[in-house]
């Protein structure tokens, strides 16, 4: 048991938490409960990012997702205020057989993917920023250098993407004259 063992234990706990809370999130009837479980998922994900030495993403995850986006979701739920009648009705009117067969397909695909990931040695090339380099340079600095240096072109286009999104939000929510 050294640092590696400790990391492993933390990872197992965080991973289990992610799985359980995301399952709970999708199965809750009350949308507020779902939203709360989603926050738990986000926090557990942030822990996994930390273990991967990606502090910047971990902080962004908590600030942006667990903070800002979650607030928006809660606002929407409260404003729309689902009446109980709407919640009662079955949202997916499917026969049990259909449901089971879909579930089977999903499980088979997931298991395949898991085995593929576990039993085949990836032959990938190592990137220019392995964990050691990141540790010495600092996470935010590395991110910034990539974003404003190498990836400046897609970064600029992403700003146009945001502009288009804003135009869309305004024009679609505006009342008709």
């Amino acid at each position: 048991m050294g640092a590696i063992g400790f990391k492993f234990v933390v990872f197992i706990v965080a991973a289990l938490l992610v799985i359980v809370s995301s399952l709970l999130m999708t199965t809750r009837k009350n949308p507020i409960h779902s939203a709360l479980w989603m926050i738990v998922t986000f926090f557990a994900m942030a822990v996994i990012y930390l273990l991967l030495n990606a502090q910047f993403i971990a902080v962004a995850q908590i600030m942006v997702y667990a903070g800002a986006i979650m607030m928006l979701i809660l606002f929407v739920i409260m404003m729309v205020s689902l009446d109980n009648g709407a919640q009662e009705q079955k949202r997916f009117p499917m026969a049990m057989g259909t449901r089971l067969s879909w579930a089977l397909v999903v499980v088979v695909l997931l298991v395949e993917l898991m085995f593929a990931a576990l039993f085949y040695q990836a032959t990938a090339k190592v990137g220019s920023y392995p964990a050691e380099a990141v540790a010495s340079l600092g996470n935010a600095k590395t991110m910034g250098m990539l974003l404003y240096g190498k990836y400046i072109f897609p970064f600029e286009i992403a700003s146009i993407l945001l502009l288009v999104g804003i135009i869309g939000a305004v024009v679609l929510s505006r009342k008709n004259k």
């Binding site: 990836y151 897609p154 286009i157 993407l161 288009v164 999104g165 869309g168 024009v171 679609l172 505006r174």
Partner: peptide, 26 residues
């Protein structure tokens, strides 16, 4: 020739079209 740029271009295109498809508000 880069997946990142292809993806971002595709998203700029798609999001514009999503909005355009719904412009007939009434």
């Amino acid at each position: 020739n880069n997946f990142i740029t292809i993806f971002i271009g595709l998203e700029v295109m798609s999001i514009s079209i999503y909005i355009l498809a719904g412009l007939m508000g009434g």
